[in-house]
Amino acid sequence: MNTSKPILVTVGILSFALVGFALYLQHAMDMLPCPLCVMQRYAFVAVGLLCFIFAAFPRSTTRLGAALAALAALVGGGIAGWHLWIKAHPAVSCGIDPLETSLNKIFTAELMPFLFKADGLCTTDYEPIIGLSIPQWSLIWFVILALLLIWAALRQSR
């Protein structure tokens, strides 16, 4: 029988691998995450958790899980798109503002500051990775994950 569970597991692994890479960039390469970077991390974690949770549920719920995870990926893509807009318009900044203060007071940021604490500025230009900025890579990955999840949600079980 054909199910979407392998797709959910694969997308979940990819989502957490991308968060792991973000942690590598933060802690090994000293690239401090800005508030929008942290919000993108929340979106990747949401996608991964939804995928793993619904992959563990009965087969009848995998389509719902894929649809919810696709929605989280689309939200993350929107955040990454906004981040790119801010980088293209340096006069606008999300730097030290109420967004950063609010994000850093969420219980997950206080519990896991190494992962969810916003310390950087959105307009900081870091060295590109294979020619693209971090928000560009995030947007690409959110689109890929959303397309996979939409396909899994629309896929018919046989």
Rank of each mutant, 00 (worst) to 15 (best):
His83Gln: 12
Ala67Ser: 14
Met39Phe: 02
Phe52Asp: 04
Pro128Gln: 04
His83Thr: 02
Ala56Thr: 11
Ser60Ile: 13
Asp97Lys: 08
Ala118Phe: 05
Ser102Glu: 12
Gly95Lys: 14
Gly120Lys: 03
Val45Ser: 05
Asp125Lys: 15
Lys117Pro: 00
Asp125Cys: 13
Ala55Asp: 01
Ile96His: 15
Thr62Gly: 05
Gly120Pro: 07
Thr62Glu: 13
Glu100Tyr: 08
Ile53Glu: 02
Glu110Asp: 02
Cys122Tyr: 04
Arg59Glu: 15
Met39His: 08
Asp119Arg: 11
Glu100Leu: 13
Pro90His: 07
Leu84Ala: 00
Ser102Gln: 13
Glu100Met: 15
Lys117Val: 01
Cys51Lys: 00
Ser93Asp: 11
Pro113Ile: 01
Val47Lys: 02
Ile79Leu: 02
Gly48Cys: 06
Gln40Cys: 06
Gly48Asp: 02
Val38Ile: 14
Lys87Asp: 09
Ala80Thr: 01
Ala72Leu: 08
Ala43His: 03
Pro98Gln: 10
Arg59Pro: 09
Lys87Ala: 12
Leu64Val: 08
Phe57Arg: 11
Cys94Ile: 11
Trp85Ser: 03
Asp119Glu: 15
Glu110Gly: 10
Thr108His: 08
Phe116Glu: 00
Asp125Gly: 13
Ser60Leu: 08
Glu127Phe: 08
Ala56Lys: 12
Ile106Arg: 08
Ala80Gln: 03
Ala72Gly: 11
Ile129Cys: 02
Thr62Ile: 06
Cys51Gln: 07
Pro58Ile: 09
Cys122Pro: 01
Leu84His: 02
Leu50Asn: 10
Leu84Ser: 05
Ala55Gly: 09
Lys87Asn: 12
Gly95Thr: 14
Phe114Ser: 13
Pro98Tyr: 08
Val75Asn: 01
Val47Ile: 12
Ala80Asp: 04
Glu100Asp: 12
Phe52Gly: 07
His83Cys: 06
Ser102Phe: 13
Ala46Ser: 15
Trp82Asp: 12
Val92Pro: 04
Phe52His: 04
Leu121Tyr: 11
Gly95Val: 12
